[in-house]
Design a protein around this nucleic acid. Structure first.
Length: 423
RNA sequence: GUGGGCGUAGCUCAGCCGGUAGAGCUCUGGAUUGUGGCUCCAGUGGUCGCGGGUUCAAAUCCCGUCGCUCACCCCA
């Protein structure tokens, strides 16, 4: 039996990982500016946390969770999303007592048992952001703006942010009933899926992708016409704030979201190109009662999660150039004595901060030069019998081809200054 | 859970109306005895996913199985 990785998971290898590191570093920079701090929750939790937060009847909980009993008999689940853990942590550490508004972000793997396809994996990575403690539409707009600014820094300018309001505890249940009444006469025409949705989550009928259902859905009452005064006002405020800083968006009343805890502002960011049918790069919204549901204090929250694999797959080529750092110096050693000297010399150069490569197993000069060229090394340091005898090594610029003699005594200093002169 | 496509060298693939494997790239060496990139030459590298069947003979035809992939569903 051949050893193999598990279905639906991937190794992120050198050559690819540089993109991830870049995206993470840009995220850190931009989130820092907005005052968000990193949090690293564990990747598994008690199963109940997810059942109660995400919703018992959602696909995630019903059939996608990696759940197991540990040796102590506890029901454990690998996290299928990040918000639940952050909320748990927020309550457990009584963060509400430290600051009225807690701003957190996280990065890491999530797990869902689904059939893999383009842009969908069983272990996938999300960057998530949670702003906890404010009901203000201003925070919705600020977080969404931060997100779009993040995309801009990554060179992604043609992503579309679609927003909607799902209503609150007051108006959503009312709308739900109105919707059900309106759907009822169409039940026979709707797909079997929507017939199930009718009872369990009628809002989902709205974004059904079956063509005929979509047409019916268009004629159904819209949430925006049934928001309570407060929700209507808040949604308008969100848009006003977005407009104030020219954060672009479109209102799409089909945006529903799959997790139970969302209310009020909800949104998705869609890429029209580059992704397959999984075109949502990011999704999020308000979840005003989740903290309370877990016996925390009333804490209205706003957050989002974005899919790393999807994000990375649409990064523009020009931003991906030069992410891999080439060696500053590549040693080329001729003969046994030079090979012996190579380690102390690389050690000396690395000690002053340079990236130095050498061929551990030697090889011909040609092959060493070739390797240096292949890695796009900036300089080579050639060490042969003559150089050792004279205590002067040959430093060669691999770009222009010039070479200089450098003294063994002042090697590191000379190499550094030569490198600097070509920056 | 349902459906389509595909599994041949490290990578990308050709060969598939049967005659026990080939190209390009990569890698190594040489042309250029201590100077890379371009070019040319040579070499390394394969249980043709796995199992069974038909046949004198199977990468090729048939059956099964596993894997990958795309899509539905749903979602990041």
């Amino acid at each position: 039996m051949k050893i193999k990785s598990v279905k639906g998971v991937k190794d992120i290898l050198p050559g690819e990982i540089e993109k991830w590191q870049w995206v993470e570093s840009v995220a850190q920079q931009i989130f820092f500016r907005y005052g968000f701090k990193e949090i690293r929750p564990p990747i598994f939790e008690y199963t109940n946390l997810f059942k109660r937060s995400i919703g018992d009847t959602t696909d995630i909980v019903e059939k996608e969770m990696y759940t197991f009993k540990d040796k102590g008999g506890e029901e454990i689940t690998l996290r299928p999303e990040g918000t639940a853990s952050v909320v748990r942590s927020y309550i457990e550490h009584k963060m509400h007592g430290q600051n009225p508004l807690t701003k957190l972000y996280y990065f890491g793997p999530m797990f869902r048992y689904e059939r893999p396809q383009a842009g969908r994996f069983r272990q996938f990575y999300q960057i998530g952001v949670e702003a906890m403690g404010s009901p203000s539409p201003a925070i919705d707009a600020e977080v969404m703006t931060m997100l779009m600014e993040f995309f801009k820094l990554l060179g992604l300018n043609d992503l579309e942010m679609q927003i909607n309001s799902l209503g609150c505890k007051v108006c959503r249940p009312q709308y739900r009933e109105i919707l059900k009444t309106a759907i009822k006469p169409h039940l026979q025409e709707l797909c079997t899926n929507c017939n199930q949705r009718y009872e369990r989550n009628p809002l989902r009928v709205l974004d059904c992708k079956v063509e005929r259902d979509g047409k019916i859905a268009k004629g159904l009452p819209k949430i925006k016409d049934h928001l309570c005064a407060q929700c209507e006002q808040d949604f308008a405020d969100v848009q006003k704030h977005l407009d104030a800083v020219n954060t672009s968006y479109t209102v799409n009343d089909q945006i529903v979201r799959g997790l139970d805890y969302y209310n009020k502002t909800s949104f998705e960011v869609i890429s029209k190109t580059g992704l397959g049918s999984q075109n949502a790069v990011c999704g999020g919204g308000r979840y005003d009662s989740l903290v309370e549901d877990f016996d925390g204090p009333p804490t209205p929250c706003f957050g989002f999660a974005l899919g790393m694999e999807r994000l990375i797959s649409i990064l523009p080529d020009e931003k991906l150039q030069g992410l891999e750092q080439p060696p500053d110096v590549h040693l080329v050693c001729l003969g046994e004595e030079a090979q012996q000297l190579a380690f102390p010399i690389t050690h000396q150069l690395r000690a002053v901060g340079l990236y130095v490569e050498r061929e551990i197993d030697g090889g011909s000069m040609k092959s060493q030069m070739r390797k240096a060229n292949k890695l796009a090394s900036r300089f080579t340091l050639i060490i042969g019998e003559d150089e050792i005898k004279n205590q002067r090594y040959l430093l060669k610029n691999m770009d222009g081809g010039e070479q200089w003699e450098v003294s063994a005594n002042t090697l590191a200093k000379e190499v550094q200054s030569r490198l600097k002169s070509f920056d």
